[in-house]
C-alpha cells in the first residue's frame, strides 16, 4: 500500500482498521510498512481522503 502524501490529511483512520500495525502516524506524516502489510485493503477502503492506493 502507498500513501499519496498530497492527499493525506493525517487523520489516522487507516491505523484503526489495520489488523497488523503496519501504519505509523506522526504530526506530519503517515507511513505504511510494506514488509508488515498483508494487503487486506482495509486502510484503502476507509480512507476518507482517498489517499491510499495499491502498490509500493
Amino acid at each position: 500500500m502507498k500513501v499519496i502524501h498530497e492527499l493525506c490529511d493525517i487523520c489516522g483512520t487507516c491505523v484503526a482498521v489495520c489488523p497488523v500495525d503496519a501504519i505509523t502516524v506522526s504530526e506530519f506524516n503517515v507511513e505504511i510498512d510494506n514488509d508488515i502489510c498483508t494487503n487486506c485493503l482495509n486502510c484503502l477502503k476507509v480512507c476518507p481522503a482517498k489517499a491510499i492506493v495499491e502498490g509500493e
Partner: peptide, 26 residues
C-alpha cells in the same frame, strides 16, 4: 491517543476496529 491509537497495540492489546465499526468522515 485517539482513533489512530497505537499505544494500546504497543502494550499487546488488540485495538483493531472492523470496517463496519468505523465511520469514515469528511
Amino acid at each position: 491517543d485517539g482513533t489512530e491509537s497505537r499505544v494500546g497495540r504497543w502494550a499487546g492489546i488488540n485495538t483493531t476496529v472492523a470496517l463496519r465499526d468505523i465511520d469514515t468522515c469528511v
